[in-house]
Amino acid sequence: MDFGTIIDAAFSAAFGPQAIVFALAAIGLNVHFGYTGLLNFGQAGFMSVAAFGLAVTVVTWDLPFWLGLIVGMFAAIVLALVLGVPTLRLRADYLAIVTIASAEILRLCFGAVEFKDTFGGSNGLTGFVRPYQKLNPYNDGLTLGVVSFSRSDLWSITVGWTLVAICCLIVWALMRSPWGRVLKSIREDEDAVRSLGKNVFAYKMQALVLGGVFGGIAGIFHILKQGSSVPTDFNTTFTFYAYAALLIGGAARVLGPVVGSMIFWFLIAGIGSFFSEATKGADPVIPNWIMQPDQASLIRLILLGLGLMLLMIFRPQGIFGDRREIAIDGR
């Protein structure tokens, strides 16, 4: 058993690019679910339209990178509007069903053989990432004790955490304002807000767009850090994991999704690495008849599921949340 490997895996995951993607996506979900009470189960859809907006613009249409970024963000906004118009007047469960369905529709279409010429089929698109990599100012990777980051990871970490900081700043500034107050009120009782002369639909739409834009940023960052845009990355399970990260940190807290994502990845990578170390080699710590090496990676998912249940039952406000003011015990 090599504990160095485990610690490296846990820490580099907690601060690495994957945790950033989750943090960005969860910040968006925090605006939707945490503050406004909108059940968006299709955050992966917002990520995928933005990601493919960029990739298709650059790879398929051969247009400049910056235009791709604009197209990507624009696609996320349009998706929010398209989903919001029919569902925001309905009960919360309908938004959940429609968003989850749309995300799947998008993922299936992006991966379809029939649209291979545009979206690249199941392998997705590559070859849009050079302008991003060219900006990389680092010459070398970074090693801090047992934790190490490669050169390109270091660049992604710099960009990513900066984006996270900006997004958090925006959320913080908005949520202390009267606008944020209206959202929190809608989360609790939209009829009360309506009776006071506020256009609830418009506020929900603004929240849906804002959170969708954060999701879009997450999607674009995800494909930039890994260099390819693959449809299967944007599945429903991703959205569920992002919810898990948000709820660990605490919904309706500015830093909740960020800390939650770091903890989520620290645990996922740490536990995964622990069991993979424990089942490795000729004489593993955990005997083979209990656990095969290919089963080891499942333990973290089993624990994640169990953990999510226990978290919701015993501490629904997450680590930072204030139980008195979260949406969890709502309808």
């Binding site: 709820l247 919701m312 969890i328 015990d329």
Partner: peptide, 12 residues
């Protein structure tokens, strides 16, 4: 426990 919390429990 609220319905939304229960829904998330069911996801877990």
């Amino acid at each position: 426990t609220g319905l939304i919390a229960m829904m998330i429990v069911s996801i877990g």
